[in-house]
Write a protein that binds this DNA or RNA. Structure first.
Lengths: 191, 191
DNA sequence: CGCGATGGTAAGTGCTGTTAACATTCAGCT
DNA sequence: AGCTGAATGTTAACAGCACTTACCATCGCG
């Protein structure tokens, strides 16, 4: 991070990401604009394009942050239990908690209309998240472990989305995620 | 529906809704614009505002269609089984099938950044959808039936979202929804 | 026929993303 | 120290967007 000279900002790339995150937090995924982010960074509207190819590229950079934070949290969650069913349940709760704590990041990754297939680094980060869940899933159900991961991911995502839409409060979102994840994992382990 | 005179379109409101739906189907929820819809209806860009207060109002009209179609499908699904657990499972499958068959409507209702609280008719339609599920949920678990409905709704939504994102194929989305819904309903009915 | 309601048009405002041409500063080399 | 090229800013422009205003055409009705 270089110092600002009055002409050069010094850390514009970072400042833009921060401003964008604030904007999404304030106005929702749709409410972020390059122009407003530029204003908040005290920079002309054209400046951001020296750091990001386009609007989507800025969102993609934030989405990457989001996936990395997720991976960290999910690894912790899986590490916080020994029983594999509980590990999966803890993951589901952590997924919801991420949506609660980092609402802006969550919205960017899932409601900003970003085409993830256009950013290979995002697909890669998504796979990394998945990899954390495969070991416990295999202990629950050696075959079809991937299906189990997907099923648990789907509930967790549904609960997080419902929280985001205001259908669930934070408590209900966490509880529903935990209970449903347990139900799915237990059901599959016994048939 | 009146006839078109060359000056008056005759059925512009409907034509705009249809064009908007096509646009969303072609380009995603984000890719719809009033201007493009106007062009497809062979009408000036200002004309739509005689029929819709703003862009969101057009989306809201389509979202309403979506909820009504959902209510129809869910009622059918619940009617297609006798066992209440299977009724809930059929609902979950129907939810996913709606996302598959009516991708554009699904995206409008859940990925278009539409503020549903601003349109009371949407909240109302959402409640109507919920009402279909309460009777079977009560048969599974008299107390906390609403929680059960929410949990099943969350899985179904998660599966549909994963399908929409390309994580799931159609078959996998349906199967995961059915199996997970069964697991949740069965788990809750036995404890 | 006349007349108001309805539903179109053209033109304009202010915002957006994005680009192009130009200016300033930084960092490394001689 | 001074030169030079790469980074990183600026200003000015363009086209597309949502939306408003003022106006015009048509329909249905007394």
């Amino acid at each position: 991070m270089s110092r600002r000279t009055g002409y050069h900002h010094g850390d514009l790339r970072n400042a833009l990401e921060t401003a964008a995150l604030e904007l999404v937090a304030e106005r929702g995924a749709h409410g972020f604009t390059m122009a407003e982010a530029s204003r908040r960074a005290n920079v002309s509207v054209a400046a951001p394009f020296k750091h990001f190819a386009n609007r989507d590229a800025l969102l993609a950079a934030l989405a990457l942050r989001g996936y990395q934070e997720q991976a960290r949290r999910f690894a912790d969650a899986v590490g916080s239990a020994d029983d594999p069913v509980e590990q999966l349940a803890e993951f589901a709760v952590a997924y919801v908690q991420f949506a609660i704590d980092e609402r802006a990041l969550f919205e960017i990754t899932f409601s900003a209309g970003l085409d993830k297939t256009a950013y290979p680094e995002l697909e890669e980060a998504g796979s990394a998240v998945l990899a954390v869940l495969l070991p416990p899933a295999k202990r629950v159900r050696q075959k079809r472990a991937l299906e189990l991961v997907h099923a648990i991911g789907a509930v967790a995502h549904g609960c997080a989305a419902f929280f985001n839409e205001g259908v669930f409060g934070a408590d209900q979102a966490r509880t529903t995620a935990r209970t449903s994840a347990r139900a799915i994992a237990a059901y599959r382990s016994t048939r």
